[in-house]
Amino acid sequence: MDTIIAPPASTSKGGQTLPLSLHINGQQHDLQVEPFVTLLDLLRERLHLTGAKKGCDHGQCGACTVIVDGKRINSCLKLAVSLDGSAVTTIEGIGTEAQLHPLQQAFIDRDAFQCGYCTPGQICSAKALLDEGHCTSRADVREWMSGNLCRCGAYSNITDAVMDVLKRGAKP
């Protein structure tokens, strides 16, 4: 039996959009987006969630790392429409100003950032790493977070922060 797909709606500029439903940081978002829009651009430009950064825009630096359905992804490489129905967590959904997430506090305590540009992606990656259960040693942290680059070179402090959370057994 053939599946019938309704034609996409048109935008005011004459382009086509597709319906998209995402659960982002605990809130439901029902959107119409062009099929070429990346998750990163949707988050930053349409939803004004600017924590995830556009670093290289080629999936090589990790500044745009977010968590989708419990897994770390480079949001610059993922088309938003391919994630219909997914749960997305950005840095804005991890902790609050009043109650920092243990990783956020550890990054502060360990001075695990300098310019801060990569920090949202680093924290999202570290949270997923801990949630995935891959982290048991400093070598694991370095290996599993090797896709997140820090131009300032704060790697040892980042590793220390992740290990602090792991050792404390804090719920990631």
Rank of each mutant, 00 (worst) to 15 (best):
E45N: 15
L83M: 10
R72Q: 03
G116S: 05
L49F: 14
K127Y: 11
R46Q: 15
R44L: 08
C115N: 02
I123W: 05
R110N: 09
L39Y: 11
H101Q: 13
L130R: 02
S75F: 15
Q60F: 08
A128P: 07
G121D: 13
G62Q: 05
F113G: 01
C124H: 01
P120C: 00
A126C: 07
P102T: 09
R44H: 08
L77H: 05
C61N: 10
C118G: 12
L130S: 06
S82W: 02
Q99I: 14
I123P: 11
G59E: 01
R110Y: 03
G93A: 10
G121N: 09
V88H: 01
K78F: 06
E132A: 15
C76T: 09
L42R: 00
S86R: 00
I94K: 01
L77A: 05
S75Y: 14
T119M: 10
G51D: 05
G55M: 11
G116E: 03
L49Y: 13
R72M: 03
L77T: 09
S125Q: 10
P120S: 00
S75Q: 09
A106W: 06
L129A: 15
E132L: 07
D111Y: 09
G59N: 03
V88L: 02
A112I: 14
L43P: 11
K78T: 13
A106S: 09
F36K: 12
G70S: 08
L77F: 04
H101M: 15
C124I: 06
T89W: 01
T65S: 02
S86I: 06
L39F: 13
S125C: 14
A63Y: 05
T90E: 03
A63S: 13
G51N: 06
K71F: 12
D111L: 12
F107T: 01
D69F: 13
G93Q: 09
H58G: 04
Q105G: 03
S75W: 14
D84R: 00
A126M: 08
G55I: 12
D84T: 04
L47Y: 05
G95K: 02
I73Q: 00
F36H: 10
R46T: 15
K54T: 09
A52R: 01
H48M: 10
D69A: 13
Q99G: 04
D84N: 11
L40W: 07
A106M: 08
Q114H: 12
E45C: 14
Y117L: 05
T89R: 10
D41T: 15
A106P: 04
Q105S: 01
I108S: 01
L40G: 08
Q104Y: 06
H58S: 06
D41H: 15
C115K: 03
L129M: 14
L42I: 02
T90D: 06
R72E: 03
G95E: 04
I73R: 00
S86K: 00
E97P: 13
C118A: 08
G62K: 06
V68G: 11
E132W: 01
L40N: 06
Y117N: 01
L103G: 12
L47T: 10
Q104P: 08
R44F: 08
L100M: 07
T38L: 00
C115F: 04
Q99L: 13
V37H: 00
Q60P: 04
A80F: 11
C115E: 03
T65C: 01
V88F: 02
R110K: 11
